[in-house]
């Protein structure tokens, strides 16, 4: 009995982690390059909706995933344009996009499905007939690729330079803004993919279904000290905590306090109680060439 409980618990925790992990890895790319992306919440939502619509009409989950990822990239493009090219405030842009995403998804949901809250049912990953969850494998692969690309490739080195000391990078002939664009677009793609998972998992779209996961993803990134592996560990932590509350409803601790956990932890980490938590030095500051 205990064994079954453990495996089910473990798998559930992993499943719950997926929509935290993908946007969190995305956020890491964006912030390593020096751009704060709060719009992840909105991108998750848009990704989920696009996937739902795409799958609904084509009955093809690969098209659905493609829709999710592309919509994520497009929203990321808006954020890049506003934050990098126009150098407007990155926080405000992110918040605006989240509001926009909420509106756009509900608006078109009403038009397409006649309800601004719920879409119709779509097929999910079960149609692939795999004995395992493909998204979990996908996440592991993406995690590995993220780590390698950030720390082992030319792109990653230049991205990190753009986020830490854009002037130095510029002085060596690196196109800082191009690096930042790529970072943000990757964050859009990964968050869109996370949205796809949400849609498939629920087999439909519900308004506001991202439910704060984009913010938890940011929290995980901070707790993970802006390192993809650290972010992954933090996401797993949250995934397990949430799975725990679902399994053990009468644990004596009200669910709300478990819900608070990621946020309280982020505040503690940011305040420096668990070692230094410094973002890339140029994080949030638009780069303007001098002279």
């Amino acid at each position: 009995m205990d064994d079954i409980l453990n495996i089910a618990f473990f798998l559930q925790a992993l499943r719950i982690t997926i929509p935290y992990l993908l946007p969190s890895l995305g956020a890491t790319f964006s912030e390593k390059g020096g751009v704060i992306n709060i719009a992840l919440e909105g991108i998750l939502l848009v990704g989920a909706f696009s996937t739902t619509v795409g799958t609904f009409y084509t009955h093809n989950i690969f098209i659905g995933i493609l829709c999710g990822v592309i919509s994520g990239v497009l929203i990321g493009l808006i954020h890049s344009y506003v934050a990098i090219t126009f150098k407007a405030n990155q926080i405000v842009s992110g918040i605006a996009i989240n509001i926009l995403a909420l509106g756009i998804t509900k608006f078109f949901c009403k038009i397409i499905f006649n309800s601004s809250s719920n879409s119709e049912r779509i097929i999910g990953l079960e149609t692939l007939n795999l004995p395992f969850n493909p998204f979990i494998i996908l996440c592991v692969i993406i995690l590995a690729l993220s780590y390698i690309s950030i720390y082992k490739t030319k792109f990653g080195l230049r991205l990190r330079a753009a986020g830490e000391n854009p002037e130095a990078a510029d002085s060596l002939g690196i196109n800082v803004n191009k690096m930042r664009y790529i970072g943000v677009l990757i964050s859009g793609a990964l968050s869109g993919l996370g949205g796809s998972w949400l849609a498939f998992n629920q087999h439909s779209f519900t308004d506001g279904m991202s439910a704060g996961r984009g913010y938890i993803a940011l929290a995980a990134m901070i707790i993970g000290k802006w390192n993809p592996l650290g972010a992954a560990v933090a996401c797993l932590l949250f995934g397990f905590a949430e799975s725990f509350t679902l399994q053990f409803q009468e644990s004596g601790i009200p669910t709300q306090f478990i819900q608070m956990l990621p946020y309280v932890l982020t505040i503690i980490v940011l305040a420096g109680f668990i070692g230094k938590a410094t973002p890339p030095a140029a994080d949030g500051i638009p780069y303007e060439k001098k002279d």
Partner: peptide, 27 residues
């Protein structure tokens, strides 16, 4: 809601184009 989001984005972008008083960075 869509309009609200667009208004915010437009205001901060136009402010930068015409260099008005608005936040440029978070630090």
């Amino acid at each position: 809601t869509i309009l609200q989001g667009i208004i915010i984005l437009t205001v901060i972008t136009l402010s930068r184009i015409f260099d008005w008083e608005t936040l440029k960075s978070t630090k």
